[in-house]
Amino acid sequence: MTPTLTQPAAPAPRATAVDVDAAELVRVRDLSRVFDVSKPWLNRMIEREPRKLLKAVSDVSFSINKRETLALVGESGSGKSTVAKMVVGLLRPTSGQVRIDGLDMWAGGDLTALRRRIQMIFQDPYASLNPRWRVDAIIADPIVAFGISTDRAEIEHRVGELLRLVGLDPLDGRKYPHEFSGGQRQRICIARALSSNPEFLVCDEPTSALDVSVQAQILNFMRDLQDQLGLTYLFISHNLAVVRHMANRIGVMYLGRVVELAPTQDIFRQPQHPYTRMLLDAVPDLAMSGRPRKMVEGEIPNPIDPPTGCTFHPRCPLAFDRCKREVPIALKTGFDRSVACHAVEEARG
């Protein structure tokens, strides 16, 4: 899917870097994940096929400061959701590190204390709430699981507070998820995520299943929550408009790699990587300024058999010999921004 600008008037982008020397909360270093997608052993033996490995995420590094939003954008299949799952602790990385407030998430040891501080908001508000559970039980689940409170009256009180916080009636807790609309369900998901008082929220395309009008509501609400509760977000999306509205910094992902990482304003004003430029050029121009719109050329290659060198080279207008041979490494190209591209490095862009 091509990232698209779905809102008529793009809201003002967020200010770059809330606080320049804010404390770092999340640090991800050289994160990789390989999936084994080969056929069963017997089939492989009979058909004489080798193992098939899918490298979903390769050497992804970034850090997120407290109270900041980092967004990861990319087409479907670029590995952004896989990164989110590894950061949140649902999927074990093949290699690399995830550190939250200095604690290594996958080094082993007791994660309970760490888990309380991280929560996730999922893509599909229809699948992320258990249809057979009442809303109050759903929201109370983290409170009970982490043993934050065992007193029933206190839990009920807290659930009521959370429902009010997300703009629902405390009486709604008695209902079942199917009695709510998509936007309301996503609010319930947010209430559940907030019930263990986390500081870090990973949002995996939280609005992509919602109507455009509801999307804006939820996004604004999430921004307000961030200011109010001092939350840190890792925001996954394929929608550039959404990302522009939410993020302080943006990482652009292509085939499992972060190709460009820069503050939001810089990405939109002055994209450096050819892929980022291609994405921005493809955004439909609703202001009818007459800007010629270029389509995104080609499709994302098969990650089981990725192109050699820079994986973007078959689609890249600036590709040359070196791109087919060498994987570009991320180079610092300015304050707080980096790009992984030979063309940019050699100033051919």
Binding site: V88, G89, L90, L111, T112, R115, I118, Q119, M120, F122, Q123, D124, A127, S128, L129, N130, P131, R132, W133, D141, P142, A145, F146, C189, R192, S196
Partner: peptide
């Protein structure tokens, strides 16, 4: 995703199976 949400808060597989998946 509701099962992932339950795994996220560190519930045991047994608890997820019998109190989250079973009713469904």
């Amino acid at each position: 995703e509701y099962v992932q949400a339950a795994r996220l808060i560190g519930l045991s597989s047994r608890k997820i199976m019998f109190s989250h998946v079973l009713p469904n």
